[in-house]
C-alpha cells in the first residue's frame, strides 16, 4: 500500500486546493479474444493546484495510460478522474497534452501550429498571431515562425509542441515523456527551459517519465509506479528549494539522496521478482 502522506484516501477531507482527483481508476485492455491485461489497478491520487507532479515508472506500468485518462483521451474501465470536482468525460482545453511524438500538424507552419488553439477558441486572427509570436519567442524559437515542422530538429519540435499547448492556456499541462525522444544534451536544455517557463505562472503539471533524475530535478512530488498491474508504489515529496539550478542541484546531497533512494526502491522491487 502506498504509505505517503501525499496520498489521501478520498473518503477523508479533500484539500481545498485539489485540482485533479483520480478515484480508484482501473484500466483493462483486451489483448486478444480471451485474454485481458490489467494495465492500471485501483489508482487513487490527488494533485494540488500549481504542483509539478511526476509519474515515474518502468515502461509498461501504465503511466502514460493514466495520463491519457486524465486527458480524457481514454476512458477508464472502472473508477473516475475529476478535474476541479467535475468528472472528466473527454478532452478539453483546460488540460493540454504534450506528447513524446510531438504530434505537430505537418501541414502547418510553426506559427500555424501555435495559433491553432487560440483560433479554435475564437480568438481574432491578429490577436492570436500576436500571442503566438510572443509564445514562440518565449520558447526560444524566434525567427522560425514560418518554418514547417519537418525543417526543425527534435528539440525544436518539442518547443513548438509546448508553445502550441500553452497557447490555449490550459490549467493543467499533461506531459507524456516529452523529452524521451531527444538526445541527452537537448534533454537537459529543455528541462532547464521548462522549469524557467514553469516558474513564471506555476501551472499544474503532470509529467510522465521513466528517468529518475528528470523526475527529481523537476518535481514537487514523484509518484512511483510498479509494474503489472500498474499500481502506485510510493509518493515522494521532493523538498528541494526553487528556483532550481541544475549545476547547484547536482552537487546537492539532498538531491543525490532522492535519486539514490528512488533507484534503490526500484531495484528492490526488481529483486522481489516483479518483472520489468
Amino acid at each position: 500500500m502506498p504509505s505517503s502522506e501525499w496520498v489521501r484516501p478520498l473518503t477523508s477531507q479533500k484539500p481545498a486546493s485539489a485540482i485533479l482527483e483520480i478515484d480508484r481508476v482501473s484500466q483493462v485492455f483486451q489483448t486478444s479474444a480471451r485474454k485481458e491485461h490489467l494495465a492500471l489497478s485501483e489508482i487513487s491520487l490527488t494533485i494540488e493546484e500549481g504542483a509539478f507532479v511526476s509519474i515515474l515508472g518502468p515502461s509498461g506500468c501504465g503511466k502514460s495510460t493514466l495520463l491519457y485518462i486524465v486527458g480524457g483521451f481514454v476512458s477508464p474501465t472502472r473508477g473516475a478522474a475529476k478535474m476541479k470536482g467535475q468528472a472528466i468525460t473527454g478532452p478539453g482545453p483546460d488540460r493540454g497534452p504534450v506528447f513524446q511524438e510531438f504530434a505537430l500538424f505537418p501541414w502547418k507552419t510553426v506559427l500555424g501550429n501555435v495559433m491553432y488553439g487560440p483560433r479554435q477558441r475564437g480568438v481574432r486572427a491578429t490577436e492570436a498571431e500576436a500571442q503566438s509570436r510572443a509564445l514562440i519567442e518565449m520558447v526560444g524559437l524566434k525567427g522560425y515562425e514560418n518554418f514547417y515542422p519537418k525543417e526543425l530538429s527534435g528539440g525544436m519540435k518539442q518547443r513548438v509542441a509546448l508553445a502550441r499547448t500553452l497557447a490555449y492556456h490550459p490549467q493543467v499541462l499533461l506531459m507524456d515523456e516529452p523529452f524521451g525522444a531527444l538526445d541527452a544534451h537537448t534533454r537537459t536544455r529543455l528541462q532547464n527551459d521548462l522549469l524557467n517557463i514553469w516558474e513564471r505562472d506555476r501551472k499544474t503539471v503532470l509529467f510522465v517519465t521513466h528517468s529518475v533524475d528528470e523526475a527529481v530535478f523537476l518535481s514537487d512530488k514523484v509518484v512511483m509506479m510498479s509494474n503489472s498491474p500498474g499500481r502506485i508504489r510510493e509518493v515522494i515529496a521532493i523538498d528541494l528549494p526553487r528556483p532550481r539550478r541544475r549545476n547547484e542541484l547536482l552537487l546537492d546531497p539532498r538531491y543525490q539522496k532522492y535519486v539514490v533512494d528512488i533507484e534503490r526502491m526500484f531495484d528492490e522491487s526488481e529483486e522481489a521478482g516483479a518483472p520489468l
Binding site: R95, F99, E101, A103, F105, Y116, Q120, R164, T165, P170
Partner: peptide, 14 residues
Amino acid sequence: VEQKLVWSAMAAGT
C-alpha cells in the same frame, strides 16, 4: 492518421 494529432486537436477544443 496519428492518434495523437487527433488528440492534440481535441485538447485544443476542436
